[in-house]
Design a protein around this nucleic acid. Structure first.
Lengths: 127, 127
DNA sequence: ATTTATAACGCAACAATGTTGCGTTTAATT
DNA sequence: AATTAAACGCAACATTGTTGCGTTATAAAT
């Protein structure tokens, strides 16, 4: 049976993501991790953390993938990531707007499994 | 003064995008264009078409950037792209759901300039 | 505490994607 | 037909992500 292990790479990377106010890309995590492990390991750790539902992915408007920790609220059994991400064009920070849930109505026969909502513009700090 | 020219590369690429029901990536456009021009030229033409607001960009959940033609409705002066894109996980086609406009309310002091809403799951054809 | 199985790792090599510089071509105006 | 610079091709490079494989180290069993 497939088990999962706690390694120094995994814990430090998770710490970096948890301590960050904003979503981080692979490259940013690599810069922050000070050679704790190989570049490839970061990719693998990120994949594992996403699979374990500890962090989530979001895609920036330029195509770069960013990671942020999941804030599991209270006792939600179903845990979704359909909140909005805001990407500032000036400071390039990506923030999770946890409380902003967009609404929309879809045509029939679409089955949604994953969601990515990203806005870009200027954040309060840069406005 | 900076003018823009109509070249064969530009017109054929625009045709490809306009004739497509779904949003296309650079790689897909390259495959469909049958060596009409260099790989680099495709990048440059796409940038130009986006700048001219003839096509628009959207980002898939895997980070790949797709392009679709803009359908300027009636006499809209302000022309936005804040409709939803649907990315099918099975057939990998990205469709613009032109008529589905999401609503959401943002915290104060955010200035939005661009929007990207992408859903993924199964499209009607693959359901 | 030692052994053991395998998850996770490092490294090297590769693949895909996007960018830049520069000399050449060609579209559109004169 | 001449002119000008937008657009092009090509080569080289940068970045990002992937894969294979031998090695390391975690966590469980002894």
């Amino acid at each position: 049976m497939k088990t999962t292990r706690n390694t120094t790479a995994k814990t430090t990377i998770l710490e970096i993501i948890k301590n960050s106010e904003v979503a981080l890309s692979h490259t940013e995590i690599q810069a922050l991790s000070q050679n704790v492990c190989d570049r490839v390991t970061i990719y693998r750790v990120l994949d594992r953390l996403v699979a374990e539902d500890v962090i989530h992915k979001t895609v920036n408007l330029d195509g770069t993938i960013k990671y942020a920790s999941c804030h599991h609220l209270h006792d939600d059994v179903i845990h979704t990531h359909n909140h909005i991400h805001f990407s500032c064009e000036k400071c390039h920070l990506v923030t999770c707007l946890e409380n902003v849930e967009p609404t929309f109505k879809l045509p029939p026969n679409y089955s949604v499994r994953e969601v990515n909502f990203t806005l870009s513009g200027l954040c309060p700090n840069c406005l």
